[in-house]
Computed example of a mutant assay.
Amino acid sequence: MLVLRSSAASPFGRKVKIAAHVLGLMDRLQIVDADTMNPEDNIRQQNPLGKIPALVLENGETLYDSRVIVEYLDVLAGGERLFPAGEARFTALRDQALADGIMDAALLQVYEGRFRPEDKHEPKWVGHQAGKVERGLAHAETHLSAPAGDLHVGHIALACALGYLDLRFAGRWRETHPKLVAWLADFEARVPAYARTRVTA
């Protein structure tokens, strides 16, 4: 049995879970919550960075981060399911990188609010991260909002990024990105795992 160390709200963990559903591998995956802030949690032994998600293999070795884990699962499922062959692979990887960057910048804004007192928040830092999110969304609205053809890892990552913005930023992105709203509705209709992995708090 493969063991996925993650947390319910992690957008990167959600990306792995959705990929596992799409690839038909959920029956081989045990999900174990990790508390990255707890020094007693063995996530720090499994991944020296103490970050999630991490995938513990049956031989005891661990893979991290989500990009590596999803590609491993794709190979386990026969290959070229979420990572197409040829030049199309680089389009999928680029789209994943954009979505992962949106998630990273959103998480940093959340952490600023969670771990620093309000009077010590750094507006320039928060604004810098918010700018990354907005530019990423603007690019996705223009270039990535057509209904997906063959599903690839970039689509899953983008859906998780938008879902995280719904969760932590009250879905404000929806007011100014109507094409992405329609795109996400289409993705959710096609990928039941998106609803199954949604958290609301």
Rank of each mutant, 00 (worst) to 15 (best):
L165P: 12
D27A: 09
A8S: 10
G79Y: 11
V126D: 09
A159Y: 04
E61T: 15
L165G: 01
R44H: 13
V32C: 11
L63R: 04
T197H: 07
R172K: 15
V133P: 07
L55F: 05
D119A: 06
E71H: 14
T176Y: 11
I102V: 03
L184Y: 03
F187G: 00
R14H: 13
W183D: 04
H128P: 00
E141L: 04
E188T: 13
I52A: 13
D150M: 14
G86Q: 02
L29P: 14
R5Y: 14
A19K: 00
Q96A: 05
V22I: 07
A77Q: 06
A19N: 10
D104H: 00
D65P: 01
E58R: 09
L137H: 07
R5T: 11
I43N: 09
G127F: 07
P123C: 07
P11Q: 07
E141Y: 11
G78K: 05
R89Y: 05
A193R: 02
G163A: 03
Q129I: 03
V153T: 10
H121D: 11
C160N: 06
L55S: 07
L137A: 05
E188C: 09
I102Y: 01
R81I: 12
A148D: 08
T36Q: 08
P53D: 06
R174G: 03
I18S: 03
S6C: 10
A8Y: 03
D119E: 14
W183N: 01
L4I: 15
H177Q: 08
Y194Q: 10
A189V: 05
W173M: 03
L151T: 10
L23A: 04
H155S: 02
S10T: 13
P39Q: 06
H139F: 15
R135V: 06
C160L: 09
A146S: 14
L180F: 04
G13N: 12
N42V: 09
A106C: 08
L98T: 03
H121A: 08
S145W: 00
M26V: 12
H21S: 11
L107R: 11
F187S: 01
A8M: 03
D166C: 06
H177V: 07
D150K: 10
A8T: 08
D104Q: 00
K124Q: 15
V191F: 07
V22P: 03
Y194R: 14
A105V: 01
P84W: 05
G101K: 04
L107D: 12
P123K: 09
I156E: 08
P117G: 01
N47G: 10
N38G: 05
T176A: 15
F169E: 01
L158K: 08
D27F: 02
G149S: 03
D166L: 04
A140S: 15
G79P: 15
T176E: 09
M26D: 02
V70H: 02
G127Q: 13
E61L: 15
G154W: 00
G13E: 13
K17C: 10
E118V: 12
L29E: 04
M37S: 10
G163F: 01
R94Y: 06
